[in-house]
Design a protein around this nucleic acid. Sequence first.
DNA 1: TTGTACGCGTTATCAA
DNA 2: TTGATAACGCGTACAA
Lengths: 341, 341
Amino acid sequence: MERDKSHRDVTIKDVAKRAGVAISTVSRVLNGLDKVSAKTEKRVREAVAELGYVQNALAVSMVTGQTKTVLMVVPDFTNDFNGSVIQGAEEYLKARGYTMLISSTRDFEEEDFEKLYRRFSGLADGILVVQGSPDRMDHARWEKPLVLIDAYRPQEDHYTVEIDNERGTFLLTEELIKNGHRRIGLVGGIPGESASGRRVAGYLSAMEHFGILADRRLMAFGSHFEETGSRAMAAFLSLPEGARPTGVVAVNNLTCVGCMKVLAERGMRAGREISLTAFDDHLLARYSVPGITVIERPTIEMGREGAKVLLALLSGERPKEKRLLMESRLIRRGSVIPIGE
Amino acid sequence: MERDKSHRDVTIKDVAKRAGVAISTVSRVLNGLDKVSAKTEKRVREAVAELGYVQNALAVSMVTGQTKTVLMVVPDFTNDFNGSVIQGAEEYLKARGYTMLISSTRDFEEEDFEKLYRRFSGLADGILVVQGSPDRMDHARWEKPLVLIDAYRPQEDHYTVEIDNERGTFLLTEELIKNGHRRIGLVGGIPGESASGRRVAGYLSAMEHFGILADRRLMAFGSHFEETGSRAMAAFLSLPEGARPTGVVAVNNLTCVGCMKVLAERGMRAGREISLTAFDDHLLARYSVPGITVIERPTIEMGREGAKVLLALLSGERPKEKRLLMESRLIRRGSVIPIGE
DNA sequence: TTGTACGCGTTATCAA
DNA sequence: TTGATAACGCGTACAA
């Protein structure tokens, strides 16, 4: 509570005194807007250097109304997809003089979103929200610029950065079908969540496209986490021979890991006893033997583009295309076994 | 630049007017310090609710001198170790009313650290620095409370949260030796960095302890990244039969991944053609078949403890033990092959 | 118990 | 081209 005024930071006043000018002159030099004589400017700059003066960002924000700060909301920091998105966004923001505040929504209750908005509304100029959480958030409470990454809410009207989720699982499913698979399991994510929803749709649409009847027993849902993948794979494996899927599509990185975990526990491997394809590339998919066939998303770029759109919004631009669709691609590895008819 | 005063946020003044009291009374109610009559308090609370008043954190910080914000500096967000540390710290801070600012130091030049300190010195009350970057940082410029996580600089005097790095690699090396290995390769990290240094020391000390002469050709250095592991493993494998290591110790998660990558490319596997042990548990170590024998660190807890120490510092406490040592443990998996004498 | 008024470090307006 | 000063929203001595 006690402020120690003795070793206070040096302020604009100190600089003004040292340079023998008014504080408004110092401010002008620092912000380089109005004209200042070369001589005065030099004196001020010297005083700044000598005193090691640093602007008080808080005071600047108070009067300008801008914090030059962006809030990033992610479901979880331990997921490598989120990590990459953050990396991309942070680099872009930092390079443009913006600072990044961060908050994870793991274990959030409904009410916590409201608190989050309250707490940060005065601290950040804009907000970047990464998938997962958004479906439970009431974005309407946030009145400043907002960009959604990897989420889309048709009933609302936000700027978003996405990939074509439906096409992704379509490709994964198609890959299995073209290799002769007919009984294909699906490990869905959270039933109501937007990205998961599209991915499930892609699976169904591929099945239909190739005239295969989808089997309810081969579709499992739950969460974005490992556990859902493990449970699903275990259930699939316990089906009788004729009903058991020969291939499985996992809708995200962690559920894929869960599938692989169960396989490993039973001495099985994707690409040997069963085929597996999944959304999102990750270490395990890339370097396990055989590797997993996946849909790779430009994660760093998604973060960067999200930040780019947000800064555009902050500078008053209003891009008329609200949804930005990024490219994703299928990477074929050894996890899909060709099956003879 | 233009502040739109028309739809300004509601301020403490508005609340005071609505409640028919002075702003100082509102402040008192909000901060609950001084005594306020029950009736007045009720009126104020109602006014707050009706107007949807939210304190302006910036203004509060200006007058209190505290930002209730902590800066977290990490080398990279895409590394799962860092992600976990962030997760642990963020949860702890959030629960205590603190906000987290974040910055990655990937690709930082020397001078950037100075800029970083400048930029954030007024924005955060304290700083949490995660390994990697610290060795190139001049922490002296940061005058507020600081806690180092997974880094130790003997020449300086900071609060740190660590594990016994030397013991970790000692155990990894010992595990190989006890399984009959004698030619053991080491994939070191950044030569000058503190944690890497201790880990290299652990390897050397195990070798010496068991009377094995360390071979320079079996020690490779470079970075914390995959590439260093790949290069090292490739070099090891190209050694003539009698000089080639039968076991390898990787000092961190990514270099371990790099090793596994090279093995995979050549159709080899850790636990088959060669033995491998590594620092840090991660997806690939856990679920590849066979799994990798690793040192597991309590990553989330390290973040949490770091935050805890920092908040203690911020509240004026000065724990006399500056170095906090966390427990790590060896997890045995199938990547170590017993070798007959 | 409550109200007045000052200060926190800036920017921006208006005069000089 | 420069200087004086009113905001920005709040906490808190000090007075009432």
